[in-house]
Design a protein around this nucleic acid. Sequence first.
DNA 1: TTATAGGCCGAACTATTGTTCGATGTCAAG
DNA 2: CTTGACATCGAACAATAGTTCGGCCTATAA
Lengths: 224, 224
Amino acid sequence: MNNNLSARQKKILEYIETFIAQNGYPPTIREIGKHVGIASTSVVNYNLNKLVERGYIERQPEVSRGLRLVSQTSEEMPVQYADLASLVPVPMVGKIAASAPVPLPGEDFGYYYDADDVIEVPQSLIGAFQGQDLFALRVTGDSMIDAMVAEGDIIVLNRQNTAKNGDMVAVWLSERGETTLKKYFLEGRQVRLQPANPMMDPIYVSADQVNIQGRVLAVLRTLH
Amino acid sequence: MNNNLSARQKKILEYIETFIAQNGYPPTIREIGKHVGIASTSVVNYNLNKLVERGYIERQPEVSRGLRLVSQTSEEMPVQYADLASLVPVPMVGKIAASAPVPLPGEDFGYYYDADDVIEVPQSLIGAFQGQDLFALRVTGDSMIDAMVAEGDIIVLNRQNTAKNGDMVAVWLSERGETTLKKYFLEGRQVRLQPANPMMDPIYVSADQVNIQGRVLAVLRTLH
DNA sequence: TTATAGGCCGAACTATTGTTCGATGTCAAG
DNA sequence: CTTGACATCGAACAATAGTTCGGCCTATAA
């Protein structure tokens, strides 16, 4: 079977590509025909099906503009791709202080934050974590000093409400009405919360008093 | 004018986003309506026009699926954005401890570092600084605790031997045989070195005892 | 109270768009 | 020469999808 594309099919493919890039949605059969010089919609249809057979595009029957480009893996993008992937956008959802619960990205927030409220973090700083559950907070006040976190620091968290021993977590202590950053150790029925600063003593809290808000993945401090 | 989105409009926006991600082409008015719980196409149309007014999407009249999402970020700062989002390679030239002078990238080093010894830092974290004079150090030991810097942290510096008041600098105190990170204030003939931790007291050193090794631009801490 | 605007519904209308099918021309194999 | 696969055309058809309009409801301003 011939797996090469005819000149016409290449033209179609290119047109689809530029059209999508330009408009954000795919072209119709007629639009393709007009720009590629094909008079009949059925011919375009015919060639589109060829492109499907050969794996260049996918189509959705009876759906207007129902086509999509299939990413051609073997291109020369691997370098670029790695670069783009290594910078992860993380929404800044608010501030964190000892006196208040952690603001979490709620359902009501949805995906929409101001551009100002997104920071770009190198993937290498946050390990394998990624996606919807990442968020960032700016630290206000000096109350996190025992966590070695200063005012103005940005902490990057993964939203989760469980933790493994040794994880650095943001917790809300319902009894004290207080948020803190500590290393988490479950010890029997109580939890040991160990400050990052080795000179500070841990506190012990009953497990049901501890609301884990998220795991701290990174702390960023800029000084310029 | 109210620029906020109603819950319904947020839902629509989210649906468009996931739909495009999933299918490669935008949804129709009826598809949106069905999934967002709107009975009438006219209402969807109405809300889509609201989204256009507020700059979230663009529409093409009389075109099926003629929607596109407007990228929120590229709106105002197209140039800046690319810059801010870019990663700057910074060589890791060694470790820093209180007990030893700061290793500096010497001429003899040249441009040659292992790939392992280079970290990628977002430009946004280090402000306008860039180029040859950037370097990074890993902190060993707990001796920098009064600078709110923990063991394992990475500090990014700009090599320079002068500083402005208020700059956070790495200095070698020849008299004490000690390296520290402090805020720098020149006061007459002596220098006040102020710990980042506001609970700690400053130290005062004669100006000629202070060897500035570099200005601290950022501190990075990873916890995974 | 009466307006008025915003949000919504339902239904009809029209334009767009994918699908189908018979017919034609070309070319290489039998 | 005949056959059959391949590519094309044109036209009609039917499903999809955007637009419009009258009416309803609620909250707020006059």
